[in-house]
Simulated assay, not measured.
Amino acid sequence: MSIKTAHAPQTIFVPAKTIPVKAILPWAIFGGLICLIALYFITTEQGALSLFSGTTIHEFVHDGRHLLGFPCH
C-alpha cells in the first residue's frame, strides 16, 4: 500500500515594478498642498487671522474643528 502525499503548488515570484520619484513628486507636492490648505481652514480660519470675511467657512468646518480638538469659542 502506498501513501499519497499532497504537493503544495509552486509559487511564482514576480518582481515588483518600481515607480520613479519623478513620477511621484508632483502628486506628493499637490497632495501636501491640499492637506496644508485644509489644515489652515480647519484650524486657523477665524478671528484675527482670517482671510475671508464672514462666518461661512467657520460654520462649514465647525464640527471638524471640534472633532480634531481645536477650540473655536
Score class of each variant (00 low, 15 high):
residue 41 F to P: 01
residue 31 G to V: 03
residue 58 H to W: 11
residue 34 I to L: 15
residue 42 I to T: 10
residue 72 C to D: 14
residue 5 T to Q: 09
residue 68 L to Q: 03
residue 11 T to D: 05
residue 32 G to I: 11
residue 32 G to H: 07
residue 63 D to H: 02
residue 11 T to Y: 10
residue 24 I to C: 08
residue 2 S to N: 06
residue 59 E to Q: 03
residue 65 R to S: 04
residue 70 F to T: 09
residue 15 P to L: 09
residue 14 V to C: 10
residue 44 T to N: 11
residue 54 G to F: 08
residue 50 S to H: 06
residue 37 I to S: 04
residue 4 K to N: 13
residue 7 H to N: 10
residue 28 A to S: 14
residue 23 A to F: 11
residue 12 I to V: 15
residue 35 C to M: 13
residue 21 V to Y: 11
residue 65 R to W: 04
residue 65 R to V: 04
residue 54 G to Q: 04
residue 73 H to M: 07
residue 57 I to P: 00
residue 51 L to M: 06
residue 7 H to A: 09
residue 40 Y to W: 15
residue 10 Q to A: 10
residue 2 S to Q: 04
residue 69 G to Y: 12
residue 59 E to L: 00
residue 61 V to I: 08
residue 52 F to K: 02
residue 67 L to P: 05
residue 61 V to E: 00
residue 38 A to E: 05
residue 51 L to S: 03
residue 7 H to R: 11
residue 45 E to C: 03
residue 27 W to D: 07
residue 51 L to R: 00
residue 60 F to P: 00
residue 64 G to M: 06
residue 65 R to C: 03
residue 45 E to I: 05
residue 60 F to W: 11
residue 48 A to D: 11
residue 1 M to T: 12
residue 50 S to C: 04
residue 49 L to G: 10
residue 61 V to R: 02
residue 10 Q to G: 03
residue 69 G to A: 05
residue 31 G to K: 01
residue 33 L to H: 01
residue 56 T to R: 02
residue 3 I to D: 05
residue 6 A to Q: 08
residue 33 L to N: 03
residue 38 A to M: 07
residue 34 I to F: 11
residue 51 L to D: 00
residue 22 K to M: 13
residue 18 T to P: 09
residue 40 Y to S: 01
residue 42 I to L: 04
residue 49 L to K: 11
residue 31 G to P: 00
residue 2 S to C: 01
residue 2 S to E: 08
residue 33 L to W: 05
residue 43 T to R: 04
residue 55 T to W: 04
residue 1 M to R: 05
residue 64 G to P: 02
residue 72 C to N: 10
residue 67 L to V: 12
residue 43 T to H: 05
residue 67 L to A: 14
residue 48 A to H: 08
residue 46 Q to W: 06
residue 49 L to T: 13
residue 55 T to S: 09
residue 69 G to Q: 09
residue 57 I to W: 02
residue 1 M to W: 12
residue 46 Q to R: 09
residue 60 F to Q: 03
residue 7 H to T: 14
residue 31 G to A: 07
residue 35 C to K: 06
residue 18 T to I: 14
residue 20 P to N: 15
residue 15 P to D: 15
residue 15 P to M: 12
residue 17 K to H: 14
residue 22 K to S: 15
residue 29 I to R: 00
residue 61 V to A: 02
residue 67 L to M: 11
